[in-house]
Design a binder for these strands. Structure first.
Lengths: 310, 310
DNA sequence: AGTTTGCATATCAAAGTTGGTATGCAGATT
DNA sequence: AATCTGCATACCAACTTTGATATGCAAACT
């Protein structure tokens, strides 16, 4: 497949996208400003390279095979990425000033990014600040592709960490969010065994929070629930909890915001007798990336916050 | 720039990435399995194509220029996307079965996706369901690149809607979320003029919600605030509101969940005397994409919900 | 039956591409 | 001063690529 990657060309993706969207080779050829026989040979060459047909030929045009459809969909994304690349390159050439774009895992967002933004606002009026909350793999992907100046994130396994400047770890502790009248709220002390059988609303497999929770269930011999909804959205979590007996693992910082202790809200955050700890997230930037003054200031404020609290 | 796009090759991106990460042309050449002179010429050719230097030559290697850094960052993303493309293509060739992946704007997520998932769970135990909440441009981008089976979203301007199957629009109405003791909570009737001067936590520019709010401010002659934090994360919004006098426009469905009327929570959702309405979102899928049986069932449940409520 | 439409194949033309080795140049190191 | 290191340029070799026109084939349409 690596050899295949080296032989594919941008115009191959353009061709697949053009055929998929027009349904006709001749029209696709027109889009690429080549003749129909040239497009026919390009497609045949690509199908030979990949090893399976991408389109089914019909008397009045072509339709994609499942593989063709997958490739066309991805071609859209790749070509869009290429366009963005050129736009960013052009912006870099003309020297346009930036803003500050930060990504964070949930605990870091609530605990450190938000307060730091408030402080930054006092120092720098009119600052252009963008914040995203997402799982670590999305954040690191965004960092690598230049979507973020820096992130509060974990480094996903398989990622070459040498390219990162990494500072100051911090663990997250998990609580379980349920609706106010959930049967589990009547228990004095919760153990993992008590959690058996309740539906989950949780982040997708392979995220650290998911892995931490699954690991504790495995260790205690408690089976995982068969009903799981996968989402990173807090909104979907609380929407789902509001009308079911599902449980949602969340970090302590989020719990404090959504269901503070002593408050008479719609949700309650439960603690286990033995806390579940997620391994640390960090302040991560790219070694090769020079931060703007604004971004540097925000990063320093966040780092100050991390220092003060632990 | 379009001509440039047609002349760039995948190996150009590999070269830029390799030089950026190794700092040396000879090492980059090694990674690409070519000789150092060949790599030198490739780079020179690329720099001529783009029109500016990408790297600064030093006696002991090279460092990227700002443009080179931008291109290298994007190269990472593009090559990663290429890898994903090949993986998905290989998966499609081998015929692996899918799950259901849905994206939604906030109101749609709370109002229709979550209830539909609950119903689907009763019919199909163990169903593998993934839900994301994001702004429409991200959702449509994800739909086009095959991240989602379908989305509840708006169609961003400039997008060729012909490729979509679009069903049943629905408007969203905006309320303003503030902390419980915010000065604005003491007013009986709120007008846009009352909103002048308060800091915003709001989605990024060009999102429909942002545009709807800005439009109403323009129409009434009320200046926009100079202090704005841009985020799509509900968590960051409520975290920021919790300790400032900022206001956050949110949809009615989200308001009902986060700050229900009559509840004694930390936040209050305010209504304007004349409601702000965001133009409709829709159930959108790709015409060319065949939904799995599971995805079809979930889509139909959501459509049923949309029918029943208006 | 005749015509039209859309894709596939054959043949030809016209360079361009690609990468090797050899060597030069400039700055750093010893 | 001599040597080393890393990038740039010259020259050469070996195809490969790319796309045109012409034509064939099969199914749909009139």
């Amino acid at each position: 497949m690596q050899n295949l990657a080296n032989r594919l060309q941008i115009r191959d993706f353009r061709l697949v996208q053009a055929i998929a969207s027009t349904g006709q080779l001749a029209l696709a050829a027109e889009r690429l400003a080549i003749t129909q026989p040239a497009a026919s040979r390009m497609l045949a060459s690509l199908e030979k390279l990949i090893g399976v047909p991408l389109f089914v030929r019909h008397p009045k045009g072509m339709t994609p095979t499942p593989t063709g459809e997958t490739l066309a969909r991805n071609a859209n994304s790749l070509l869009h990425g290429l366009d963005l690349t050129l736009q960013e390159t052009e912006a870099a050439i003309s020297g346009r000033a930036g803003s500050v774009r930060v990504g964070s895992v949930t605990g870091g967002a609530v605990g450190f990014v938000v307060p730091a933004i408030q402080q930054l606002k006092r120092m720098a009026e009119g600052a252009d600040i963008h914040v995203d909350v997402a799982p670590s793999d999305v954040l690191i992907g965004g960092l690598l592709s230049g979507d973020y100046d820096f992130v509060l994130s974990r480094i996903p396994p398989g990622t070459d960490a040498r390219q990162f400047a990494v500072k100051r770890g911090r663990v997250e502790i998990i609580r379980f969010l349920v609706r106010r009248d959930h049967p589990l709220t009547r228990r004095e002390k919760l153990t993992i065994a008590d959690m058996e059988g309740w539906e989950w609303v949780i982040q997708a497999p392979h995220t650290p929070m998911r892995q931490a929770v699954e690991e504790v269930f495995f260790s205690s011999g408690t089976p995982l629930p068969s009903e799981i909804v996968n989402t990173t959205s807090l909104l979907v979590m609380i929407g789902y909890l509001d009308s079911t007996d599902a449980v949602a693992p969340i970090t302590r910082e989020v719990a404090e915001l959504v269901a503070p202790k002593g408050a008479q809200g719609r949700f309650v955050a439960l603690d286990l007798d033995e806390p579940i700890v997620i391994h640390p997230y960090h302040m991560i930037s790219l070694k090769s990336h020079t931060l703007s003054p604004l971004a540097t200031r925000l990063r320093d404020l966040i780092l100050d916050g991390l220092s003060l609290s632990g």
